[in-house]
Amino acid sequence: MQYQSPASIDEAVAALATIGGARVLAGGTDLLVQLRSGSASPAAVIDIKNIAGLRTISETAEGFRIGAAVSGAEITDHEALVRAWPGVTEAAGLIGSTQVQGRASLGGNVCNASPAADTTPALIAARAVAEIIGPGGRRSIPVEQIATGPGKTSLASGEIVVSFLLPKRPARSADAYLRLIPRTEMDIAVAGAGVSLTLNEDGTIADARVGIGAVAPTALVLDGAPGILVGTKLEDAVLEKLAQMAGAAARPIDDKRGTIDYRRKVVGVLAKRAALIAYERAKGAR
């Protein structure tokens, strides 16, 4: 197996395009596990951690741009980002443990395409856009369009996600992410929910977006959520409807980690609770 550590995106794209079966290596917290267990044996790994642009967080007129290989610890250390996107950053901070945090990236989390990836529902709720560079040039797609099934993505051969753009947004906006795991860390979500809200001055919800995870082959956008939430102040009946909608949208499986019935219920509970947290945060947000 070859290891390459290019210094530019172009070099990385070229390497990926020329070596058949090469894989991108970011933090390696998914990929190295797969190599060791024998479930992946690529001809080459292309380490993108030495590509400067992939390791930075910047704030521009468009919003926050997070390099695809930035680690969870770097994300949760970035005060302005945490203030603007408490939900996305708490999702990134939930991955693994202190050790894993030093390496795990958003790009790896999203592109590994696990249905249970923690940042994906939060990024979906945040309307994050993935910026991709490949042999065919540059393109941008909403985050929910990357994973197409467990372990499968829409990325073409040679394509690399270079960054995620979290759009600028109005005052009184905030997000939240919650997941359920039987433990408190080092575990995989049984269900997860990300909620992003913008409030009117009177406290009613002006804009809402909800993503749910671990309850279908990919994370899902809860399309009907704005229809339930906008115009309300998250009254109990509204929350109940949200919970029901999340449960109904879920297409979970029965496995050793949870039953279908359990996952449907819990994803509703998490959506409800995340909405309440986002709402409280949005009230105070500038």
């Binding site: 433990r183 860390e185 080092m186 050793k256």
Partner: peptide
């Protein structure tokens, strides 16, 4: 221990054989 219908151990690792971690 969780076995599948063929009697194979389904959770032969610390991810799904859930011992407590310190923060629990």
């Amino acid at each position: 221990y969780i076995h599948d219908e063929n009697g194979r151990l389904e959770n032969a690792g610390f991810l799904d054989y859930r011992m407590p971690v310190a923060s629990d």
